[in-house]
């Protein structure tokens, strides 16, 4: 019986993973765009991205665009797999196989 992924299940981390998973592989989202999409604050978003990065679900790249620092977050293959399993588990729960 599949288990929900506790790292992804947290509401903001679920939004982050859903947003990144909606992009083509190896394509990331800038921190500012992710903040707008999720409606999170800087600190909260940063903390949850760090948790996902520690789990190996996202990679974080920092670069300078002109003089501005830009942070880009990308879902890793492992993160995409974990997200797909998490969604499958949610669907199983709805179908009444679990819960």
């Amino acid at each position: 019986m599949a288990e929900l992924d506790e790292i992804i299940h947290q509401p903001l981390r679920l939004k982050i993973m859903a947003a990144l998973n909606a992009l083509p592989a190896a394509t990331g989202l800038e921190f500012s765009r992710l903040k707008k999409l999720t409606g999170a604050t800087d600190g909260n978003l940063g903390a949850h991205i760090e948790t996902l990065a520690k789990a190996g679900y996202v990679s974080v790249e920092k670069a300078f665009v002109g003089k501005k620092p830009q942070t880009t977050v990308t879902a890793t293959a492992s993160g995409r797999g974990a997200f797909a399993r998490h969604v499958a588990t949610l669907q199983e729960i709805i179908a009444g196989k679990q819960g």
Binding site: P11, K15, A18, A19, A22, L37, T38, V87, L90, I94
Partner: peptide
């Protein structure tokens, strides 16, 4: 949770 995912996917698109 699935509705939340759908909503964010729409917004990303």
């Amino acid at each position: 949770a699935l509705a939340e995912i759908d909503d964010i996917v729409q917004r990303v698109r």
